[in-house]
């Protein structure tokens, strides 16, 4: 169903996504101003009957409409660059999670403690429980502690995939033979959904990503449980 929420950005659940949302709104505001200004200009051109006798060689107006857009672009470029460098930063991650894209599922590895490996398949429609989200829920979620820095190492086993969680502001290609790194900090507990974002074959739409964010103490318990298995 189409709602305002499907049109706008998802609610942010990480400091990075907060910044990205601010940047999006800031840029959109500038775009609206430009659109209204140019629209008004075009409209008046079409609707009046004036003829300009001295159309050529207007040095003053040429300077104004060259310099003003340049300044406007700076106001977009500077916060954009700032964000790029913030997104790249990784300080002292608490855990590293490896995610490997396959045709067509994701597999995850937690190897900081003991080796935990599992595959994460979408729940097919005929096996869905009433509380599941269609095409979004998976059988094994990635469990992650909140308010801790998580380093994700993303790669692929066959073709390029892309690992994405919109509400955390994370999207990175999973390329075979290469390890890509991103990191995030989740603000709160909850479930966060994403989908493969690089056309990777027939079932590209059916390899979602689900993060289950829990307290660090419960995460320790989860890790202990998983290592026992």
């Amino acid at each position: 169903m189409f709602t305002w929420k499907t049109m706008l950005l998802q609610d942010s659940a990480s400091p990075l996504m907060e910044q990205l949302t601010f940047f999006h709104d800031h840029t959109l505001l500038i775009l609206i101003i430009i659109t209204v200004l140019v629209g008004q200009l075009m409209l008046t051109l079409f609707t009046n009957k004036y003829i300009h006798r001295y159309l050529l060689e207007g040095q003053t107006i040429e300077i104004i409409w060259t310099v003003l857009p340049a300044i406007t672009l700076i106001f977009i470029a500077v916060p954009s660059l700032r964000l790029i460098y913030i997104l790249d930063e990784i300080n002292s991650p608490m855990i590293t999670i490896k995610s490997i894209g396959h045709q067509w599922y994701w597999s995850y590895e937690y190897s900081d403690f003991k080796n935990i490996e599992f595959d994460s398949y979408m729940i097919p429609i005929d096996e869905m429980k009433p509380w599941n989200f269609r095409l979004l829920d998976v059988d094994n979620r990635i469990t992650v502690p909140y308010e801790s820095q998580i380093r994700m190492i993303i790669t692929a086993a066959d073709v390029i995939h892309s690992w994405t969680i919109p509400s955390l502001g994370v999207k990175i290609d999973a390329t075979p033979g290469r390890l890509n790194q991103t990191s995030f900090i989740i603000n709160r507990a909850g479930l966060f959904f994403g989908q493969c974002s690089e056309i990777c074959g027939a079932n590209h739409s059916f390899m979602p990503i689900v993060i289950e964010s829990i307290t660090p103490n419960f995460f320790i318990k989860w890790i202990s449980k998983m290592t026992e298995i």
């Binding site: 900081d112 403690f113 380093r151 660090p216 320790i220 890790i223 202990s224 449980k225 026992e228």
Partner: peptide, 16 residues
């Protein structure tokens, strides 16, 4: 690794 003895301080990973 005694699984139950795992504590929050034990969470360490490869540094930057």
């Amino acid at each position: 690794f005694a699984a139950a003895a795992l504590k929050l301080e034990d969470l360490k990973t490869a540094p930057f």
